[in-house]
């Protein structure tokens, strides 16, 4: 594991409050994830790859924008690992970097229709940009 990855791992564990060592590799998170098909790396892989320090791969993957934050993996995990918090921590690590916003205010007007609630836009900005 490189030193850079070591730091990134430490940062992600701190931010998320997750201890990946609690995972018993049952796969219930990935069994329950509604966005599984849209993801390159799946919830159980987030747990495993953060533990092994493969943070770069996760940071470069579009998977981090596919999580719905529905917390089904968090509630159904028998060991209380909370994979969704790891996904969020990796995503924040990316978008907090300069120029790395996944969505900017410029792209909002194109999204709007008559019904789209403000809540969706506010949430999207929270999840996809800093």
């Amino acid at each position: 594991m490189s030193q850079k990855n070591d730091r990134a791992k430490e940062q992600i564990l701190k931010m998320s409050g997750v201890n990946p060592l609690k995972c018993m590799r049952c796969g219930k998170c990935s069994g329950t994830c509604p966005s599984y098909d849209e993801m390159e790396y799946h919830p159980h892989q987030f747990v495993y790859m953060v533990e092994t320090g493969e943070i770069d791969k996760l940071m470069q993957s579009p998977s981090i924008y596919k999580c719905l934050s529905c917390f089904a993996c968090v509630d159904r995990c028998p060991r209380g690992v909370e994979p969704a918090k790891l996904v969020e921590a990796v995503r924040l690590t990316v978008i907090r970097q300069k120029g790395m916003n996944h969505m900017t205010a410029d792209s909002i007007p194109a999204l709007l229709d008559d019904d789209l609630p403000q809540q969706a836009i506010v949430s999207a900005m929270r999840k996809y940009s800093k």
């Binding site: 590799r25 049952c26 796969g27 219930k28 998170c29 990935s30 069994g31 329950t32 994830c33 599984y36 098909d37 799946h42 159980h44 892989q45 089904a72 159904r76």
Partner: peptide, 27 residues
């Protein structure tokens, strides 16, 4: 199958089982 079921949805007389297969890395 090395994995766990995450959700069972009864629909039209069928039980739709969604689970993970960790060895094949698929849902």
């Amino acid at each position: 199958i090395k994995g766990m079921v995450g959700k069972v949805t009864p629909e039209n007389g069928v039980l739709k089982v969604q689970g993970s297969d960790l060895i094949d890395n698929r849902q």
